[in-house]
Amino acid sequence: MSATTDTDGGTGDETSRKTGRVVFETTPTIKVTLIWFGITVVIGGGILLYLIANPELFGEKQLTDIVFWVIFLLFAAILLRFGIKMFILTRTNYVVTADDIRREYELVYRRHARELPIEKIRGIEFDQSRIQSVLGFGTLSFLAGGTDQSLGFVEFENLKQPHEARNRIRTLIARRADGD
């Protein structure tokens, strides 16, 4: 049985009614994904331009054309994925209340929320990629048993000021454990 609750559809009011006082609320940054988008454009574009400039790279022009299409389709899929991710991130909210933590997004009239009660949190995983580290962003995963690949976790991805958020949630967990 998973400790988290996934909610699809419905309205925001339904979710709010179930939870307590909002301790803090924030949105993720899209800068990290935007940088990856740019890196992909540069690398993909570079490879494609190189193939255009060297049509005999694989012996015959037709073979180079096939490689060109493979790389083009692959990079197009990656860019589209980053685009969709950015779109979702701009519509995502991270909410911490006195009772639970919640990641929610609304996408084309479809609302999705994943909640995890504070008392169910067994650990906090902090992850910072190189780009996130340079920019001061980070990802917090709140684990509720099992592993971070299971359903029992909520992730705050590309969080601004992740250390501050982590400390505030730690305080909240400690208070809850003390029965305050």
Partner: peptide, 21 residues
């Protein structure tokens, strides 16, 4: 003779290699 390769053939081969990847 790959010179006679049609665009459909190119796309089919590209799709094949992409699927392998």
């Amino acid at each position: 003779d790959l010179g006679r390769l049609t665009p459909q053939g190119q796309f089919a081969l590209a799709g094949l290699f992409l699927s392998v990847f």
